[in-house]
Design a protein around this nucleic acid. Sequence first.
DNA 1: ACGCTTTTGACAATCATTATCAATAAGGCG
DNA 2: CGCCTTATTGATAATGATTGTCAAAAGCGT
Lengths: 140, 140
Amino acid sequence: MSTAKRNTWQREAVRKALGSTEGFISAQALHSSLRDRGSSIGLATVYRTLSALADEGDADSLQSPEGEALYRACTSAGHHHHLICRNCGLTVEISADEVEEWAQGVAAANGFTQPQHIVDVFGLCASCSAGGGGAEHPIS
Amino acid sequence: MSTAKRNTWQREAVRKALGSTEGFISAQALHSSLRDRGSSIGLATVYRTLSALADEGDADSLQSPEGEALYRACTSAGHHHHLICRNCGLTVEISADEVEEWAQGVAAANGFTQPQHIVDVFGLCASCSAGGGGAEHPIS
DNA sequence: ACGCTTTTGACAATCATTATCAATAAGGCG
DNA sequence: CGCCTTATTGATAATGATTGTCAAAAGCGT
Ligand SMILES: [Zn+2]
Ligand SMILES: [Zn+2]
Ligand SMILES: [Zn+2]
Ligand SMILES: [Zn+2]
C-alpha cells in the first residue's frame, strides 16, 4: 500500500523504446527518438521513468566519460559490465569473474568493507575502427 | 616549439592546492578553497588547469556518481586506479596489471580498438567500518 | 625593454538534470 | 458507470557544472 505504481502509456513507451535500442542511450536521445516517432511524451517524464527503471533494476545505467547518464534495458539479470563503442554505441555485456574477485580482494586487503565497483570499457568497435575513423555516426 | 607551456603562479597554485588536498576534490571546491586562502585565481583557470594536469598525467580524474568531475594529485606516475571510502573519502591508489590486461584483452577479443576503461572501487574503509557507520562525514 | 604568444578571468552561453505546480488520468469503490 | 483520491504528467523555470569568448595581462626569447 506504500508504492502504488500506476500503469501509464508513458512508462510503457519508455520501456519499449529502451528495449528496442541497441546499446546505451541518454535520456535526451531517447526523448528525441520518441518524439520523432510521434510520441508527445515529456522530457521530464523520460528522465523520471529512466531513473525509476534503473532503481527497480530493469535498466542499467552508467556515466559516459563526458559525464552524461546513459541507460540500457537490462537483459541479463545478474551483475555484469559493459564494453561500449564510443562512436556508434554498440554495447557488449561482459562478465568478468576475474575482475569481481580482484575487486573483492583489493578491498579486503585494504580493510574496506561493502565494496562496490565501477568497471566499464570504452573503445571503437570493429566496424568503427575499420571505417578508418571515417564513418562517423555518433551515439544514438 | 609546438607546446610552449608557460609558468604562471596560477598553475603552481592549483598544483599546490591539489597536492595538499586529501582525496578527490572538484574544480569548484578547489576554486573556493583557493579563494578562501586569499587567491584571486579565476574559476575558468582552475577548470583549464585541472584539465591540463589530468591530460599531462599529473592528476587523476574520475566522475563522482553524481556526475561531477573530481581531481586528485597523482603521486604514482603510471596508470592506476582507486579504492575510495564512500564515507570519509579516504583514497588508496591501486595498481592492477591483472585488470589492465583483462581490459585490453576483452576489448581486443571483441574487435574493439583504442580501449579506455573506468575502474574504481568504492567501499567503507576500516575506520568507517569499525565505527558501525556512526561517524557520518561525507566525501570532501 | 620589446614584441610576439600564451594565458588569464569576468561573464555569457551551453547542456544535462532537477524542481515546480497546475492539469490530467489511473484505480478503487459504490 | 461516474466519483474521488492521489500518483503522474509536462511545460517551464531553476539549478549547477562546464565551456566559450575575447580583451587585457603576463611569459619568454631576443
Ligand atoms: Zn562502433
Ligand atoms: Zn563487477
Ligand atoms: Zn572511511
Ligand atoms: Zn587501468
